Measured scan of single mutants.
Amino acid sequence: MAAAAAAGAGPEMVRGQVFDVGPRYTNLSYIGEGAYGMVCSAYDNVNKVRVAIKKISPFEHQTYCQRTLREIKILLRFRHENIIGINDIIRAPTIEQMKDVYIVQDLMETDLYKLLKTQHLSNDHICYFLYQILRGLKYIHSANVLHRDLKPSNLLLNTTCDLKICDFGLARVADPDHDHTGFLTEYVATRWYRAPEIMLNSKGYTKSIDIWSVGCILAEMLSNRPIFPGKHYLDQLNHILGILGSPSQEDLNCIINLKARNYLLSLPHKNKVPWNRLFPNADSKALDLLDKMLTFNPHKRIEVEQALAHPYLEQYYDPSDEPIAEAPFKFDMELDDLPKEKLKELIFEETARFQPGYRS
C-alpha cells in the first residue's frame, strides 16, 4: 500500500510507478496490472468513496492506442447498470505532455475469474450472474457493438453480487458484411471463450460470437473449470467437437473457408456428449439454455433477447427493466489503419471533457 500523499506533496508512487492523480484522489492501494497499465484503488475526496484507477501508458504502440481509444469512446457513450462506466479521466493539459491516461471507475471487490478459483456457486448465484451478463449484453448488442472478449476476468463483482462487464478494448461495431482481413492475426481474445466460426472463417462476425462466450462462462460457473481449455488453435476446435459432436452437413455448409471445411470433413465422426453427463448436478433449465448458447452453427445460436426470456431466468426476466441503447454506435473511421500519432490526438480530444474549465 502506498503511503497517503500529504496535501501538495506531488504524485504518489505505487510499486515504483508514478500515479499522478492528486489532489482529488489519494490513499492509493495496488490492485493489479494488465498488459499496459496498473490498477489501484484510491480515495475520492470529492465523492467520499474509494474508486478504481487504471493507469494506461499506450502511446508507444499502435495496438494499445487503438484499444484505449475504443474503450474510452464506447464506455463514455454507454450507460447501463451492468456495464462499468467511466467516472473521470485524468491526463496532462497538453498533448505533448500526455504520456499516461488515468481512467477512474467504480471500485468492484472482485471478478468472476477470482471468485470461481475459490468458491463453488449455488444455482441461485449462477442464475443471477447469468441474468446480469445477458442484461448488459442486450444493451451492448442493441448499440450494434460486439464485445468480443467476454470471459470471467472481464466480469466485475461486488459483495452485493452486482455484476458489471468491463474491458471493451477489443470491441467492434457489428459488421457481418465487412471482410476484416487479418482478423485472426489481430484477434487476441482469450482462445477458450472463442466461437468456432472465428477459427473457421475470417469473413465478418456477428453478435452470436458473444453468446458463445457467455455459454462458455455459464459452463464454467457450473463446474469451476473452463469447458474448452484448448492449448492452441486446432486443439481448441477438437475440444469443442469432442463435446458438441461432429457438425451436420448443414452446419458445414455455413463454413465459407474450404480449407477449414475440408479439415472438419477429414475428422472421424464424434457423438455429442449429453450435458447432464458433463454437469450431473446442474439445473435442467440451465443445461437447456447452455445447449442453445453453445450451438456450433452461429445462425442457430440463441440471441440475447431470447436467452433473457428463457425459463431458467424467469424469476428475473423483465423486458421493461432491460434497457437498450438510445442509438446504434458508430465509429467515424476504422481505427485499425491509423498511425499511433493520430490515435493519440483522438484520445486527447475524447478525454477533453474531463479537463478543468472544459467548454463543449
Rank of each mutant, 00 (worst) to 15 (best):
A4G: 06
A6Y: 00
A6P: 05
G8Y: 11
G10R: 14
G10P: 05
G10A: 10
E12M: 05
V14Q: 08
Q17P: 09
Q17A: 10
V18R: 05
F19K: 12
D20W: 00
V21P: 04
P23E: 00
P23G: 01
R24G: 05
T26L: 11
S29E: 06
Y30D: 02
G32E: 01
E33C: 02
G37T: 11
C40D: 00
N45S: 07
N45G: 09
V46W: 12
K48Q: 10
V49Q: 10
K55E: 12
F59H: 00
H61C: 03
Q66W: 08
R67E: 12
E71A: 00
E71D: 13
K73W: 12
L75N: 01
R77M: 04
R77A: 05
H80F: 05
I83E: 00
I84S: 02
I86T: 00
I89E: 05
I90G: 01
P93C: 06
Q97Y: 08
K99G: 11
V104E: 08
Q105T: 08
L107R: 01
M108N: 04
T110E: 13
L112F: 07
K114T: 12
K114W: 13
L116F: 10
T118K: 12
L121H: 06
S122P: 05
C127N: 06
Y128E: 06
Y131M: 01
Q132N: 09
I133L: 13
I133Q: 02
R135M: 06
R135A: 03
G136N: 01
K138F: 05
Y139M: 12
I140N: 13
I140T: 00
H141W: 06
A143L: 11
N144E: 08
N144D: 08
V145L: 13
L146E: 07
H147L: 14
R148S: 12
L150Y: 05
K151W: 09
N154C: 06
L157V: 07
D162N: 14
L163E: 03
I165F: 15
C166K: 10
G169N: 00
L170G: 08
V173P: 05
D175G: 12
P176D: 08
P176R: 12
P176F: 07
D177P: 04
H178T: 10
G182R: 15
L184W: 11
E186L: 09
E186P: 05
Y187D: 12
A189G: 05
T190I: 07
R191P: 12
A195N: 00
P196Q: 12
G204T: 08
Y205N: 15
T206H: 11
S208E: 06
S208K: 07
I211C: 12
S213Y: 08
C216F: 14
I217W: 08
F228T: 00
L234S: 13
Q236W: 05
L237K: 03
L237T: 06
N238R: 09
I240E: 05
G242I: 02
I243K: 01
G245D: 11
P247I: 00
Q249A: 08
Q249F: 04
E250W: 00
L252P: 13
L258D: 07
L258Q: 15
L258C: 04
L264K: 00
P268A: 02
H269T: 10
K270H: 03
K270E: 07
P274V: 05
P274E: 12
R277K: 14
N281L: 08
A282Q: 04
D283E: 15
L287S: 10
D288H: 03
L290A: 09
D291H: 05
K292S: 08
K292V: 02
L294V: 05
L294N: 06
N297M: 09
H299N: 15
R301A: 08
R301M: 03
E305A: 13
L308F: 04
L308Q: 12
A309V: 02
H310R: 04
L313G: 10
D318Q: 04
P319N: 06
S320E: 10
I324N: 11
D332P: 00
D332G: 10
P339G: 07
P339C: 09
L343S: 12
L343P: 08
K344T: 09
L346K: 11
T351V: 04
A352H: 01
A352L: 07
A352D: 13
R353H: 07
R353A: 03
F354T: 06
Q355I: 05
Q355N: 03
G357R: 03
R359A: 12
